[in-house]
């Protein structure tokens, strides 16, 4: 899992707040912006990959069985996957439920 970023002392910030490591956007925990998260009913899922394709944050990852699982470190809870799922296999659930 990517490491948390941004929670450091002012003394540790790189000069001018530059990001010295290229391609590290995946380290940013965008998951904490979320108020709801998607839950997939794998009995309905046909592994079409629409959730994976449409997810704006590339938060869906295919597992060994071919199903797409959401990575909650990055999922912002936008719900696009719910709308695009042709089998209505995904629903949004309030955080904490």
């Amino acid at each position: 899992m990517a490491k948390e970023t941004g929670i450091i002392s002012w003394k540790e910030l790189p000069l001018g707040c530059a990001i010295l490591e290229p391609g590290n956007a995946s380290e940013l925990r965008t998951g904490d912006w979320r108020s709801q998260h998607p839950v997939t009913d794998f009995d309905k899922c046909i592994q079409c990959g629409n959730c994976y394709i449409y997810c704006p944050d590339m938060a869906y990852v295919q597992n060994e069985e071919g199903f797409y699982e959401v990575d909650l470190y990055h999922c912002k809870g936008c719900g696009i996957c719910v709308r695009e799922c042709p089998k209505n296999a995904i629903k949004m659930v309030e955080e904490g439920h």
Binding site: W10, C17, E21
Partner: peptide
């Protein structure tokens, strides 16, 4: 490298302090 990235609320205060 990236110069001038967005400063989220978690980092803006520290950036200004620095």
């Amino acid at each position: 490298i990236t110069m001038g990235p967005v400063g989220m609320p978690e980092v803006y205060t520290e950036a200004k302090k620095a």
